[in-house]
Design a protein around this nucleic acid. Structure first.
Lengths: 105, 105
DNA sequence: GTCGAAATTCGATGACTATCGTACTTGTGC
DNA sequence: GCACAAGTACGATAGTCATCGAATTTCGAC
């Protein structure tokens, strides 16, 4: 079975989809943690207050919107923020939505 | 009875609230039309595809998030985009979210 | 092969919300 | 006064979605 889930190409990014992903506080927190860390993070290593199955759901939404890229390393699934692509598709959006960025970088 | 509805002050703007308002396509269209027009517009003069009662609901959400200011002139209620305040509170957000703005201004 | 860790899948559920029609209020004009 | 126009308020409804637990898959280590 293929273990690499589908990711949208950059030219198929959809603003509506991205906004729906970013409107959830938990998902926005995931994005913010990825941005702050500056490195890829495993699903289980995030500081979030929901169950694992709910977390899986959030990662899927973020991935399908194009905000993150997911790949396996062993049993862990690493998450990478697609910041460059997002910035190109929707300039200023992530900066406006991630608190740490908005607050003077 | 007081006819001026409550508006949040700028220092009480809440990102979560603003995003919830902007995630709806109808509301984003209202904001975009206000931005493009550059002048205040009456509730009934927008190009939207929902009933009047639904429109009222959307205007209320936008107002309570701080995105628009509403005031009466006769039986009409005019809507003004609070762009300056929004730009100050969340720099780059409206630019990123309004298509006309995002597409090279 | 067996065990445990990491994550997904699969319903089920509860809450929220966009939508509408109808009734009502408010103001203008005659 | 009356009629009309512009919006609002009020339920009601249907669809979506965040959440969870339990069962399952996949991989690494022993």
């Amino acid at each position: 079975m293929e273990r690499t889930p589908p990711h949208p190409e950059m030219d198929r990014f959809d603003l509506q989809r991205v906004l729906e992903a970013l409107v959830d506080p938990v998902r926005r927190s995931i994005v913010a943690q990825l941005d702050a860390a500056g490195e890829d993070i495993a699903c289980g290593a995030f500081d979030i207050s929901v169950s694992k199955s709910t977390a899986t759901h959030h990662f899927k939404v973020l991935r399908e919107a194009g905000l993150i890229r997911q790949y396996y390393v062993g049993t862990s699934r690493l998450n990478a923020l697609r910041r460059t692509e997002m910035d190109q598709a929707f300039p200023g959006l992530l900066d406006a939505v991630i608190p740490a960025r908005a607050a003077g970088r």
